[in-house]
Design a protein around this nucleic acid. Structure first.
Lengths: 173, 173
DNA sequence: ATAGGGTCCGTACCCTAGTACGGAGTCAAG
DNA sequence: CTTGACTCCGTACTAGGGTACGGACCCTAT
């Protein structure tokens, strides 16, 4: 595969042209210019791959900022490897948590589907029930293999008795 | 556990008070009023659970709109069961896709961690490589026809050759 | 009863992640 | 050369998801 113009790269990655330029401005992808040529951007297959990656990562709940972190996690001989490593470990934890949550939702959906065969009377059942961390997911016999990290406590407002004002905490979703 | 005021419910669910009111306005949770009492909102444990669910679902890439759909997917005797069923099946597909994508990222991170023992020379390795659909475990291909549910498809000009969209203007050299 | 924190509501504001637009330059085909 | 498709850049605008106020009302302990 050869290099593409921005419109073709966009079509290939299933995004808009403007989105690519936006990612570029945000520093998620490098400026793909060939200095001596027309000034038009040229996209290598790798770059297109990177754009696809960004999309995928977004779909599973990473923000562009986090994606940037993911992308910069590369075993660069010049980089401080121990830092890369610990960041990678942290991200991996996050990924595992997300997977576990998705699995819970999946269980809930499955049991909902099972109980709802196409018509007629059925018992009450909301997905909420399957998600509660307190009383585990015992539904179908699908082995739950992990102790369920149960969502790390981010930083949270905890002014004991509202000593001052509880309004100015920043969240980073 | 008994009912809580909004501030306590917020702390319990790890969100802001304003966020709860916001969800209420959006119709994600019902108005928890006791008509004859003070007018203050009161939150049952179930409601708090619901709020927690919303947060979790967001973290794994569902929009509030999708979460609303998920929440309304309940085996309600009054509901059209076949519709609930097919929606649940669709959501389940989506969940499985997300899990697969997360697994890919997880693999990538693991191999990055493995190759990066804490210091020193290491080979080049980006997460991108592990994510490529072409050489991994075959995730159900969803190219082309999947509207990529988690990201607002919005208006993407797909007009192959910009048939009618010519907003560019002739320049006189 | 009164003080101080809690709550109410509406509106305004903010950040993220794009999208749209305008005016102009570039490229390839005819 | 002329066209029409494509690109560039900068700026403005949007939608989604909250956050922040402000002014007023409510509750509980002292």
């Amino acid at each position: 595969m050869k290099d593409l113009t921005i419109a073709k790269a966009a079509r290939e990655a299933d995004v808009g042209v403007e989105t690519i330029r936006f990612y570029e401005r945000r520093g998620l992808i490098e400026q793909p210019r060939k200095p001596q040529s027309s000034g038009f951007r040229v996209y290598s297959p790798e770059l297109v791959k990177r754009i696809k990656f960004i999309r995928q990562a977004q779909q599973i709940g990473f923000s562009l900022h986090e994606i940037q972190e993911l992308l910069s996690l590369r075993a660069d001989p010049a980089a401080d490897c121990s830092m890369v490593r610990s960041q990678a470990i942290a991200k991996l934890e996050e990924v595992k948590r997300k997977i576990e949550q998705l699995r819970q939702i999946g269980f809930a959906l499955e049991s909902l589907i099972a109980v709802c065969p196409g018509r007629g009377g059925l018992q009450a059942c909301t997905i909420l029930d399957t998600l509660e961390p307190d009383h585990g997911p015992p539904p179908p016999r699908i082995r739950a293999d992990g102790p369920l990290p149960a969502i790390p406590p981010k930083r949270r407002r905890q002014n004991g008795k509202f000593g001052t004002d509880n309004r100015q905490q920043r969240r980073a979703t």
